[in-house]
Design a protein around this nucleic acid. Structure first.
Lengths: 178, 178
DNA sequence: TGGTGCATGTAACCTGTTACATGATTCG
DNA sequence: CGAATCATGTAACAGGTTACATGCACCA
């Protein structure tokens, strides 16, 4: 379902081809709803078949430029404000963490340490991209910014939690050995 | 992949049947890696076929009790400390948020408000279950606790972010109308 | 004219969800 | 004996990933 509306959402701003959308997915959508080329082209055909978008222009190399239809916009708006389905997120990271009792303490420590350095780097990347961005400029995308704010806060939280976990592990190790 | 190791992880603690595991998934695993009955039974057969678990006992009603094998334990340990694949999480919530520019300001406000009340309730549930839990007791599950700590912090962050977003929206509305 | 980039499509495979289907056992 | 629960299996479908396949157009 969601990919459908991610694509529709991009087309709501301006007409684009599958190829165009693919690039946009790599830029703005990559942290929220990544999509592969294969998936996107399939979805565009389905969207066109159900009349939510239409081919508004044909260019060189078989380029099909799609535009959102009135129906499509209505459907998009309906979906956006629909109640959330529930937010359970599968997380391989947490699964690994919760199973760390199955490996040796030093392996566990090592794993968490490398996780920490990873999320810490992620956080730095986010903070940098936030600092360099000119927020006055693209104020049109206030809500896209709000989503990024979420990701930034997530990254901060991840880093703080990983830090906390390392400390807890160290505290535990010193207790059992002391 | 992950379901495989979630099941293996539970079997690493003690032998169990598919039916037993299903209950455990509903309890301890539900926030990290939920699984359906259909999926679990299939995976157990695959695990048995590849020799990572084995039927250690057959009970009434065709009950098959599985135990982890030496091979299985080794495989599990290998997976647990494997480097993370990258932590991009698809999020319908964020997708909806980032598209809120497509609906009217009052619809957007309404949507975020209801999201806020939802995540706030979630947070309260987590906090309550944390308070009522006796952490001295099940210290054996230190890392499972660490995963819950993550979920609690996530819930806190979600609530704070939703609160922030509502304030931002209000600030914006009063600016444009004043 | 040959390589790079534009542009789309399809097939195989894996994971996950819902629903259907079946039957044994225990307990009141 | 009938209902609830134990216990497993399968089929259909939706979504996602990787890889393969094809061909046009532009520019050096």
């Amino acid at each position: 379902m969601a990919l459908r509306f991610a694509a529709l959402g991009l087309l709501a701003k301006e007409p684009a081809s599958g190829y165009d959308l693919l690039k946009k997915f790599k830029q703005s959508m990559s942290q929220i709803w990544p999509a592969t080329q294969s998936q996107l082209y399939g979805e565009l055909n389905k969207l066109a078949a159900s009349g939510l978008i239409e081919v508004s222009n044909v260019g060189p190399r078989g380029r099909k430029e799609y535009s959102i239809t009135t129906e499509g916009r209505a459907e998009l708006q309906r979906w956006i404000i629909a109640p959330e389905d529930g937010l359970v997120q599968r997380s391989p990271v947490l699964l690994r963490i919760s199973l760390l009792g199955e490996v040796t303490p030093s392996q566990a420590h090592e794993h968490v340490a490398s996780l920490h350095s990873f999320v810490d780097q992620e956080l730095k990347n986010y903070e940098e991209s936030f600092d360099t961005r000119d927020w006055q400029q693209d104020d049109g995308d206030f809500f896209a910014r709000a989503a990024l704010e979420y990701l930034l806060r997530s990254a901060r939280m991840d880093a703080a939690w990983a830090r906390w976990l390392i400390d807890e592990i160290d505290r535990r190790n010193s207790q059992s050995s002391g």
